Computed example of a mutant assay.
Amino acid sequence: MTKLFLSLHVLAVIVAIGPVTVAASMFAPALRRAQADPSSERDLANVALLHRICRVYAGVGIAVPMFGFATAGSLGVLGSGWLVASIVLTGAAAAVLVLLVLPAQDRALSDLTAAAGVSDAGATAPGIATRAAGRLAMHTGIFNLLWATVTVLMIVRPGSTTGA
């Protein structure tokens, strides 16, 4: 059963977390392109698609900790320090995604759709929009760094008899 849980856990990470990290990383540059030309339907559609990918796969990502806990329970490592650290970092990554990245993407998309319907005089000031895109990129980078750290902990497993 352990091999099944581990396989499902790794597949869930690849299928759910991979698309979120890629789409979230692509969002800020796509946002900047769309802000440069708010009338571009293609740029607006790209930003909307990237946001949808992030939202959908963030929801699918709940399978990662579910299968992770099942795997850890079957391996008997629930109290291991590396696993506790991984759980805390996974929670932090989820919080960054849900509390910072996704709401900022929502606001940016709303601003873009509003700007697409008005003249340049009614659009968001360029400096404010650029700072928002920069902040979003920073939060996305933090999210990705947290996931990279969890990945390393899962592979190396400090103190484990099978760790590197």
Rank of each mutant, 00 (worst) to 15 (best):
51 H>P: 09
83 L>K: 03
105 Q>F: 06
151 T>Y: 12
27 F>A: 05
30 A>E: 03
24 A>L: 07
49 L>S: 12
72 A>D: 00
23 A>R: 02
50 L>K: 11
62 I>C: 11
22 V>H: 02
119 S>K: 04
34 A>V: 06
35 Q>H: 06
89 L>F: 12
82 W>E: 03
27 F>E: 15
156 V>K: 08
45 A>R: 13
56 V>M: 06
64 V>Y: 00
30 A>Y: 01
59 G>P: 01
122 G>D: 11
19 P>L: 13
157 R>H: 04
32 R>L: 09
16 A>E: 01
4 L>T: 14
102 L>Q: 10
30 A>M: 12
54 C>H: 02
2 T>N: 14
5 F>I: 10
82 W>N: 05
6 L>C: 12
60 V>N: 07
24 A>Y: 13
64 V>G: 02
27 F>P: 13
92 A>E: 03
140 T>S: 00
142 I>C: 06
70 A>T: 03
128 I>F: 02
140 T>C: 08
45 A>G: 01
11 L>K: 04
55 R>D: 11
16 A>D: 05
161 T>Q: 13
84 V>C: 00
67 F>E: 12
86 S>P: 02
162 T>P: 04
149 T>H: 02
110 S>N: 15
111 D>I: 13
1 M>E: 09
25 S>P: 11
49 L>W: 14
57 Y>E: 01
85 A>V: 05
157 R>M: 06
42 R>W: 13
53 I>W: 07
65 P>Y: 04
78 L>E: 05
151 T>L: 13
99 L>I: 11
17 I>V: 13
103 P>S: 15
110 S>E: 12
44 L>A: 15
105 Q>N: 06
143 F>I: 00
141 G>S: 00
121 A>E: 10
89 L>W: 05
15 V>F: 09
39 S>F: 14
97 L>P: 06
88 V>I: 13
56 V>H: 00
160 S>F: 04
7 S>A: 11
89 L>E: 05
42 R>A: 14
97 L>N: 02
119 S>P: 07
90 T>K: 00
52 R>N: 08
31 L>N: 11
6 L>D: 06
67 F>V: 14
74 S>P: 05
132 A>E: 10
18 G>F: 14
48 A>W: 08
6 L>H: 09
155 I>K: 07
146 L>I: 02
81 G>K: 15
62 I>P: 04
23 A>M: 00
81 G>F: 11
154 M>V: 01
73 G>P: 01
126 P>H: 07
133 A>I: 09
17 I>R: 04
6 L>F: 15
34 A>S: 10
112 L>W: 08
99 L>P: 15
67 F>K: 09
18 G>R: 14
22 V>R: 01
141 G>T: 03
136 L>H: 07
126 P>S: 04
20 V>E: 11
